[in-house]
Write a protein that binds this DNA or RNA. Structure first.
Lengths: 217, 217
DNA sequence: TTTAGAAAAGTGGTCTGACCACTTTTTCTA
DNA sequence: TAGAAAAAGTGGTCAGACCACTTTTCTAAA
């Protein structure tokens, strides 16, 4: 295992490497991860760099360190993230939630508009979206929502939406997993049929799922 | 400024001290914070400890570091948003429809949120609004909607709403006439009861009426 | 006087090595 | 064999040293 250090942010890379290490060695929640010195040697970096990465993860509540004992993966319930965020940086955290919530407001309305307008529902883009979904089984949430927002024909909303997307990028931007696919399929179906309420309901469900399933480490 | 180091987590303390420092020195979003070396000296700790704290904040997206430049407080709202919005509206001769429609989207959602939350519905502001309406029979639309948007507790939406209100000011900003009053009354009533669908329906009706009245001009 | 370029200072990024305080493991007694 | 002492391991912190890059300052030419 080695790390390139071409550009920027060693500690970010280390976080990433750490994640791979935990996966590869199958370290369970509550399990112990290698010592800082060992990590430094294995990852071929200085101990202080390892520590900077670990401290970040600790602040996020993802790991726990015991002086003289070692470093351990936090016993599940990573919901701590939100807690820690709100405890430490109250205003900023609510701002971030505001961003994502605002974006959802715009998305919801775009769905409403498209779903309620037959012409918009018949746009060829939905068919190709469905084809993609069936063929590849995977599709980025933002790609879907972008098409819907574009279709709703409010350029100002589109601009704001893109802006919010950039700022709130930590959540909601993943790819659809197998688990999400049936919901996503239902969502698009309802949308194309024009069942506004059902489409929005599926949308909420889908979003909820994405939010939960986000890999933290 | 000094730090005790009795037990546990120097870097947590530093994060806390850092917050105080930013507050005390009134460093604005986008502003520069003292260099790592200066912080280390002022807080009477080692530079690596300062760095561990900073790295945590960076992972949270609260600060931004530029190699050779310094460390800055992340500036994620205000300027850029306002800028983009204004350039959009000023440069591209935009149809006001977009502006007003977008504002309506936000308003509609604020109504939904307030109407669906008992705590928000019980805010004393609605009572005084009703009193005003009965006593004077006249009330500005924007005053009503502002209260509702504020109550919905999304500061970002509030900011965008205010902005849109400024740009789209030729419409929707009138006072309630006798004709509108029963609808407005119904709207607020439904809102306070928690009948979301009915409230929004009344809202649409009310808005429609206002819109017509404007068109005459 | 102005300004373009070079030098210096400042700053984050990383590494090394050194202690300390504490915990876990091992070893050595009684 | 059990208990205590020693050793090893581990996180916590600090100091100093380079490096790469940016910003500021200074200098010399136009």
């Amino acid at each position: 295992m080695s790390i390139e250090k071409p550009t920027s942010k060693m500690f970010i890379q280390i976080v990433s490497e750490l994640r791979a290490l935990i996966r590869d060695e199958n370290i369970p929640a509550g399990g112990k991860i290698p010592s800082e010195r060992v990590l430094a040697e294995r990852l071929n970096v200085g101990r202080s760099s390892v520590r900077e990465a670990l401290r970040s993860l600790e602040l996020l509540g993802l790991i726990e360190t015991r002086r003289g004992g070692g470093t351990f993966i936090t016993d599940f319930r990573n919901h701590k993230l939100v807690e820690v965020l709100s405890t430490f940086i109250l205003h900023e955290e609510t701002d971030l939630e505001n961003v994502n919530e605002t974006r959802k407001i715009l998305e919801r309305d775009a769905i409403r508009i498209v779903s309620a307008n037959e012409t918009l529902r018949k746009l060829p883009v939905w068919d190709s979206l469905c084809d993609n979904l069936e063929l590849e089984g995977i599709i980025a949430r933002e790609d879907i929502m972008r098409e819907i927002v574009i279709a709703s024909e409010n350029r100002l909303v589109l601009k704001i939406w893109i802006l919010l997307k950039q700022y709130g990028k930590e959540a909601y931007n993943g790819f659809s997993t197998e688990q999400e696919q049936p919901i996503l399929q239902a969502f698009i179906s309802e949308l194309m049929i024009g069942n506004t309420a059902e489409a929005i309901s599926s949308f909420e469900e889908w979003t909820e799922l994405l939010h939960k399933g986000r890999d933290i480490l």
